[in-house]
Design a protein around this nucleic acid. Sequence first.
RNA 1: GACCCCGUAGCUCAAUUGGAUAGAGCAACAGCCUUCUAAGCUGUAGGUUGCGCGUUCGAUUCGCGCCGGGGUCACCA
Length: 553
Amino acid sequence: MMKEYLTGLFADALRAINAPDGIKLTFEKPKQEAHGDLTTNVAMLVAKSLGTNPRVLAQEIVAHLNARSDFVSSVEVAGPGFINFKFADAFFTGQVGSILEQNNSFGKSSIGGNRKTQVEFVSANPTGPLSVGHGRQAVIGDTIANLLQWTGHSVTREYYYNNAGRQMRVLAESTYARYRQLFDETYPFPEEGYQGDYIRNIARKIMERHGKALCSAEKEAALKACKEFAEQSLFDDIKKVLLVMRVRHDVFFNEDSLYASGALNEVVAEFRSRGLAYDKDNAVWFKATALGLDQDRVIIKSTGEPTYRLPDIAYHRDKFRRGFELIVDVFGADHIATIPDVLAGVRALGYDPEKVKVVIHQFVTLMKNGEQVKMSKRLANFVTLQELIDEVGVDAVRFFFLMRSVSSHLEFDLDLAKEQSEKNPVYYVQYAHARIVSILRFAKEQGVFDTADQRNIQGIQYNLLCGGSEVALAKLLLEFPEVVEATCLGFEPHRLTTYLHDVATAFHRFYHDHRVVIPEKELSRARSALSLATKVVLANGFKILGISAPEQM
RNA sequence: GACCCCGUAGCUCAAUUGGAUAGAGCAACAGCCUUCUAAGCUGUAGGUUGCGCGUUCGAUUCGCGCCGGGGUCACCA
């Protein structure tokens, strides 16, 4: 709103001084508050081509600006040639009412244009409980999906899995061995087997169901039974944990369906017809080098089995065929190498790889007693996501996972999270919300402000809000829609947690400086409304992050 | 060896995508509750942004070269 207004003013001013066309005119919020509310560097960009000094040029531009004094309170040239604008306090506080009117919708936008969007995340095969790393991915994916919904995309959350590959064979063998060991401790356990206790638990359940019958059954049949039982059991667990994490997928897509539908053969045939596949050493190769990659890749092994690349490519084509216009893949850093192949495959099939946005997140390092906990599913010394949630709670887990940029390694100190959970940053932001609820409850008791009554949020004299921390809070709240948008477009959820932390700080400061419920009725109502607007922003932000908005703490 | 991520205060991390004097939280020190939640607020201290060139009005951000940490380089997923 401010930006649009200034852009108009500048168009006239730049024309008046005969500036060249096509100038990139942008306004930014300066880091330093003292530099005003918005700033532009346009004079520095243009000075060179006009052969003048940026500061002189800036002065000249300013002289041609015709700003309304009730909007813009000051314009000045500063530093090497920035033009800084300060807006009137009432310009900000006057907009607080619109936050209350929009309420649950404040922060939503339609920039997504209802674009059909898919977010694929977690996608763990059912070979064990979800790890802490999966948890990070689940939260990142879910939050990105929330952000996309808030910005007007039509979102499908999808989980892709394979219950047929080598990993599942290992699972079957491991489970079978544990089952046999229940009757004969000396029964050998496969060298590469999954050693986690969860396998023993599953084996025990199989015994409860089948007794000793599988020991005497034919081995292949017994393995199949073990596999199915283990898979079912593990998938139930996975879904249960995801639910606890407040993560819900719309579609569970099984890799097998790509085999069944003939999609794999189709892709191979299409590659061949375009000269992008060839036979060598009894295997089928994808000619990735023809698409600019550094080496060709096997897509069908000499055994006749496809490598993971082929179904991955076919799966992505399936996404396009289902009409998704934006495809977001959330992967762990260990999948980074496969992405170029998949994107090349997509391009080879005639689809636009630009529509695929890959979000790579780095790993989580668990710290315990000041030492790193090495995690390996196979070696059984890992902490499961469920255990982590049991220790520190869902809100803390979600918030922690979102606090850091996805490209940063995340260090999660278990001891700190356990022993000092009260110092967890999530409590800081939630506390602000609970505090507001408490204040508004008191305001209602005192007959000052009743949030349930719509008439109460009409006719408020927002211009009474003129203290520094009041105006600062109002300004920050009004940034929420932009923050949601930027966070979404950059696929950087941590920016929202940072922002909400700032909002909490601004509120706590306001609370410290000013009493809300006071005898001066109009001022009291204005401050109540400001508090309510803060609650709206916090609650909406929490909703996107998937954490709760406590009424009391 | 090749490629990807990271390197910022004692520790964990930000930094509006190239802006002005690099910011928070923990930890340390000093203050603030007879009044709506002190899980809070205020202040002090803490830095050659790993190192070196370069690009330009301007670099934590972009390019190149080193150093250090993590990850990936299968006819595993």
